[in-house]
């Protein structure tokens, strides 16, 4: 376990170093634009999996959290001209609060009822923002990027690196949860909630905790998106596509291990970017749907589940 931890942190440091190096070496802006989106999806998918994967509570409200992140940033920028770090920190706090409130309201419901409640919450929040003039209402709002800080020479490069930092943060948290008593409790809830409760697991409190952490990370991932697009409007910030994509990425990657959503987000995110550039942004939704159906039928435990099965078969073959 301890050696795994060292390897993990070496990997995370190498990843950040590579991301930083990219910003210094590559002059072309497009790779950063594309990779930013993929990194953003990694954070969202990893965060989603904390509640959706470990505890098995399928949350369709990713876009609600993401959109709230975007609009927290918009509000702080307009009201106080707040720096990016403050926007992200505030978004995380808003996300945590929102996760707590949403969790209190909905986590007593199980299975499909919880999922429906999260969709309803998304619509309520989107409608509220749409009717809030200060942040642009339904027409949206244009935003001006401030000057970029050293060592970056371009704002998108900086956003790219910040999103890479968020990836490391999200993965580290998810990995910690998986290996700790929290993860074991969530797994017990997923397997059998009544048995978990009767074994001493405080099910509601643990689900709330998962919802708070997951919400904080999803909101934080949304905050830099305002500056990334230099524009925000409710229908794109709260687009249901975020919920569906993130769900598909987590399920295709596999939710039993923290690496699953990372793999799924890279695979699907990269495919989507490729298709958007080469064919059209409409086609990528179709491809997403087809891949999801294929995986649900052929590999219900995702890529991670598939790898595990192959490894298990091989080790049994040896014996």
């Amino acid at each position: 376990m301890k050696r795994n931890g060292i390897f993990f942190w070496i990997g995370a440091t190498l990843f950040l170093a590579a991301a930083l190096l990219m910003t210094q070496v590559i002059g072309n802006q497009y790779p950063f634009f594309a990779c930013y989106v993929i990194l953003q999806f990694i954070v969202l998918a990893v965060a989603w999996s904390i509640l959706g994967g470990y505890a098995g509570y399928v949350n369709f409200g990713t876009s609600a959290f993401f959109g709230m992140g975007v609009y927290t940033a918009v509000f702080l920028l307009k009201a106080f001209d707040a720096p990016l770090a403050a926007q992200i920190a505030a978004a995380a706090a808003v996300g945590a609060l929102m996760g707590f409130a949403l969790g209190l309201l909905t986590l007593r419901m199980q299975g499909i009822f919880f999922s429906i409640a999260t969709i309803a919450a998304t619509i309520v929040i989107e409608t509220s923002i749409t009717n809030w003039r200060y942040v642009g209402g339904s027409a949206g709002i244009q935003l001006q990027r401030p000057m970029v800080t050293e060592p970056f020479n371009n704002y998108v490069q900086m956003l790219f690196f910040i999103q890479a930092l968020l990836v490391v943060l999200a993965v580290a948290i998810s990995r910690y949860i998986q290996n700790s008593w929290i993860g074991r409790g969530l797994q017990a809830i997923k397997d059998d909630e009544l048995a978990a409760e009767c074994t001493g697991v405080p099910t509601l409190r643990l689900k709330l905790l998962a919802c708070v952490i997951s919400g904080a990370l999803m909101c934080a991932a949304g905050a830099p998106a305002a500056m990334y697009l230099q524009y925000a409007d409710p229908s794109s910030a709260f687009n249901l596509n975020y919920s569906v994509s993130v769900l598909a990425m987590s399920l295709i990657g596999g939710t039993a291990h923290w690496a699953g959503p990372v793999v799924g987000a890279i695979l699907l995110g990269a495919t989507q970017q490729l298709l958007t550039v080469t064919i059209s942004s409409e086609v990528n939704v179709l491809v997403l749907g087809v891949m999801l159906v294929l995986f649900v039928v052929a590999a219900p435990e995702g890529i991670i589940g598939l790898i595990r099965r192959v490894l298990r078969n091989r080790s049994e073959g040896k014996e």
């Binding site: 008593w181 074991r184 017990a188 397997d191 048995a195 978990a196 074994t199 001493g200 697991v201």
Partner: peptide, 16 residues
């Protein structure tokens, strides 16, 4: 707890 081993089933109880 079906996704766990027998020992892990007991660890849930120990943890909580």
């Amino acid at each position: 707890f079906k996704s766990m081993t027998v020992a892990e089933n007991l660890l849930v109880a120990l943890d909580f």
